[in-house]
Simulated assay, not measured.
Amino acid sequence: MVRSLSLHIIQDGGFAMWRCFHTECGWAGQAFAESRASYYGVAKKVESFEQVSEESIGLEPLGAKLIAYFGERMISEKTLQRNAVMQMSSDKNVIAFTYRQNGLLVGCKYRTVGKRFWQEKDTEKRLYGLDDINDVPEIIIVEGEIDKLSLEEAGFRNCVSVPGGAPGKVSTKELPSSEKDTAYQYLWNCKEYLDKMLASTLAKER
C-alpha cells in the first residue's frame, strides 16, 4: 500500500499537522485553531514546509576523509550509505545527516569534525532514522546521530536519535500542549510512529 497523505489532528481539534508522501510533492505543515493561536499569541497560524532535495541544499556523497573519520569510530561505509550520510559540497569537512521519512528527504543536520552543529532552515523537525521504526514493537531513542549509527553497528536498527540532543536536566514543569511545545515538536511530528510502540528505551552517555 502506497501512502499519500498523513494527517494528524489532536483530540480537541486545536492543532493539526500533515505531510504528503508523493515524491514530486512533499508538502507538509501544521496549523492552529483560530482561538488557540490567539490565546497563545501565535502570529503565524499555518506553518508550511517546502520539500528539499540533496541538490537544492548542496549535498554530495561522503569523501574518503569523512569515511575515514567514521571508520575511526567503528562505523562502516555500508552503514553510512544505508543511512544516507552525506557531506556539504561547498565544505567537504562538514557531515550532513539526512533526515528522511519514507525515503524522502525532510530535513538535514550538519556537523563539523570539531563538533559544531546546525540544522537546515525551514524544514520540519523529525526523529533521525524514522524509517527504521516503521514496523517494530520496541525502539531505542538516543541523543545523537552518531549514537544511532553506532547502535546499528552493534546490531540494533530499531533506533532513532533526537535532532537537538538531550536536555541538560529533566523539567519538572507540566507537559505543554502540542501547539505550545516548541522544544519537543519533533516528537509530536512523529506521534503516529510512537503511538504504535509497545516499549521504548532511552539511552544516554554516562
Rank of each mutant, 00 (worst) to 15 (best):
S90N: 15
N134C: 01
K115S: 11
Q101K: 04
A84Y: 10
R116D: 14
Q81F: 00
T123E: 08
I133V: 15
Q101H: 06
Y128R: 10
L80W: 10
D131W: 10
N102T: 03
L130W: 09
P137R: 09
V106F: 05
L127H: 02
L105N: 03
N93H: 07
K92C: 06
C108Y: 05
M88P: 05
K109W: 03
M88Q: 14
S90T: 15
A84I: 12
E77V: 04
K115Q: 01
D132N: 13
G129P: 07
D122E: 14
L105H: 06
L80F: 06
I133A: 12
L105M: 14
C108H: 07
R126H: 13
A96S: 06
L130G: 03
K121V: 04
R126V: 02
Y99M: 08
N83M: 11
Y128E: 01
K78Q: 15
L130D: 03
E138W: 04
R111P: 10
T112L: 13
P137N: 05
R126C: 05
I139Y: 00
Q87F: 13
G114R: 14
D131F: 02
P137H: 13
T112D: 10
V85F: 08
L104Q: 15
N93D: 15
M86E: 06
I140P: 00
R126D: 00
D131T: 02
D91F: 08
Q87M: 15
L127Q: 04
L105E: 00
T98P: 01
D122P: 01
E77C: 01
V136Y: 03
W118H: 13
R116K: 15
R116E: 11
K78E: 15
E120N: 03
Q87N: 11
M86W: 09
K115I: 05
L104T: 01
V106G: 02
D91G: 05
N102M: 03
E124Q: 12
Y110G: 07
L80Q: 04
N93L: 11
A84G: 00
E120T: 06
S89D: 14
V136M: 04
Q119I: 11
L104D: 04
V136Q: 06
V85M: 08
A84W: 07
Y99E: 09
S90C: 00
D131C: 09
Q101W: 00
G103M: 08
S89T: 13
G129R: 06
P137V: 10
S90M: 11
Q119L: 09
D135A: 12
K115M: 04
L105C: 08
W118C: 07
N83K: 12
K125W: 07
Y128H: 14
I95K: 02
K121C: 08
G129E: 00
F97H: 14
V106N: 08
R82H: 12
R82S: 12
N93W: 03
I141V: 12
D132Q: 10
W118P: 01
N83A: 14
T112I: 12
I139G: 01
V136A: 01
E120C: 08
M88V: 00
K92H: 14
T79E: 07
A96H: 05
T112N: 13
R82F: 05
D131V: 06
Y128Q: 03
Q119Y: 01
L104W: 04
D91P: 11
Y128P: 00
R82V: 10
G107Y: 00
R111S: 09
Q87C: 12
N83E: 11
G129L: 04
E77A: 15
V106R: 15
A96E: 09
R82T: 15
R116V: 13
V136D: 06
